[in-house]
Design a protein around this nucleic acid. Structure first.
Length: 214
DNA sequence: TTCGGTCTAGGGTACTGTGG
DNA sequence: CCACAGTACCCTAGACCGAA
């Protein structure tokens, strides 16, 4: 289903700020649109990277992210209160999470389930995800911070039970956005060990989330 | 001894970026 | 455009170790 978007541009727009490109898109500049998509393609892929999918195409998540990006371009208002990048990140994340929530709503269809670090933790609630909790998302509201800390303790405790020391270390660095190579250097291990540890983490999290939510 | 968990290692696929 | 290298991800087999 992956749709290929041509990125061959007639002119070089690499120095143009995002916000200006968005304005250009509004007045029908296709090159500006392609440039924005090209500019944010890796960003969307990175955003989608932490998702683990059972029985589905990884590319689907990227496609959802790209839809979120398109919505960001369509809806962005340059009121100087926030950058396009921040707005795009919000839209991409929300689009992916919405897709996941839609998929996981069909509880009795395992093959339609996403098992992800970004899966919403509690079915009845919110967009708060495992990734948010583990990764220590920035929370400013005191009440929310309190709730967040309780969730963090619960999940962190479970992680401590489930994962070995190496697996925990690898996961934390991975969530920091480090590459396999960087994690390997930090932990004085072979890249292969990092790879293996991450696979075990994913399997354990999949099992944990399945046991908990299905 | 058996079993389950942890870890290493080999090998495969898919994707991306780069250089000719 | 194509070949190639690097990277991420996944699967599997086997060694090792501790608990039952």
């Amino acid at each position: 289903m992956a749709m290929e978007i041509p990125v061959t541009l007639e002119r070089d727009l690499s120095d143009i700020p995002d916000e200006l490109l968005v304005e250009c898109v509004r007045i029908g500049d296709d090159d500006a649109l392609l440039s924005l998509i090209h500019r944010y393609k890796s960003f969307v892929r990175g955003k989608a990277r932490s998702y683990f999918l059972i029985g589905a195409d990884r590319e689907d998540i990227v496609q959802e992210g790209m839809i979120g990006l398109y919505k960001a371009i369509r809806d962005f208002r340059d009121d100087k209160l926030s950058s396009f990048k921040a707005f795009a990140e919000l839209c991409v994340t929300r689009q992916i999470i919405t897709a996941i929530k839609t998929a996981t709503r069909q509880k009795h269809v395992p093959l339609n389930s996403y098992i992800s670090l970004d899966k919403p933790i509690y079915e009845e609630d919110s967009d708060r995800t495992l990734m948010d909790v583990i990764g220590g998302a920035r929370v400013t509201d005191p009440e929310e911070l309190f709730i967040h800390q309780e969730e963090f303790s619960a999940i962190e405790g479970k992680m401590a039970e489930l994962l070995s020391g190496l697996e925990r270390d690898v996961l934390m660095l991975y969530l920091d956005g480090r590459s396999y190579q960087e994690i390997a250097e930090d932990l004085q291990r072979h890249v292969k060990s990092i790879d293996n540890a991450l696979q075990r983490v994913k399997r354990k999290l999949e099992k944990y989330l399945e046991d908990r939510f299905l």
